[in-house]
Amino acid sequence: MTSDRFDLGGGEPIITLRDIAKSYWRETLEIPVLQGIDLEIPAGAYIALMGPSGSGKTTLLNLIAGIDRPTGGSLEVCGHELNGLDDDQLASWRNLHVGFIFQNYNLVPVLNAFENVELPLLITGASRGERRDRVEQALALVNLEDKMKNYPRQLSGGQEQRVAIARAIVTDPDLLVADEPTGALDAKNAEEVLGLMERLNAEFGKTIVMVTHDPKAAHHAKHQIHLEKGVLDKAVEVNR
């Protein structure tokens, strides 16, 4: 089903964007990337952000994840007006509410799987025992409990991405943001990772916003939002 109203289903919005604009400056030249973005994403949604290169999808994802700031408009994510947070508050907010999944996994090469997953917990104040339990649970969820002591170089690409997913969920965030999470994987591993993300959404109620070029990957989401030249073009509910 195609909708022009960006109806992404019912429920309380976890992400609310109001007239969001983002521009970059190259010397005195303003380059608008996003303009007039109004969007509400309900909790528990699984969104695939799609669009051609330069359409602003990664920029939009970065704004939602609180690692970039808009040049106009307001955004409320996980109950917080992000414009009102300073850099340190925003960092704490990300630690509590957002899990990141990157295209290139971005694991720390000198840390083993356990230690990589433990990283976001180091700043939560959790005790050593708590951290250990949560890391073991997260790695069990991605079926890597037997690879805890393995370093990234000792893992396949798919396993690395699963460790990255475990790292993203170990703090039990409300929101997972994924930028081309299968971009560096072969088809089999990509399916595995997408299945895992689907499960996190369906079983654990995680809200997922994923940027992807891949229609097959986007098909795993519940909704697809298309951007075109920095504006929302259309939202599509995925039929499965």
Partner: peptide, 16 residues
Amino acid sequence: TTEIAVFRAMGFSAGR
């Protein structure tokens, strides 16, 4: 550079 950005994305403040 990337690793530092990932740390900060995960919630490590610039000061930390």
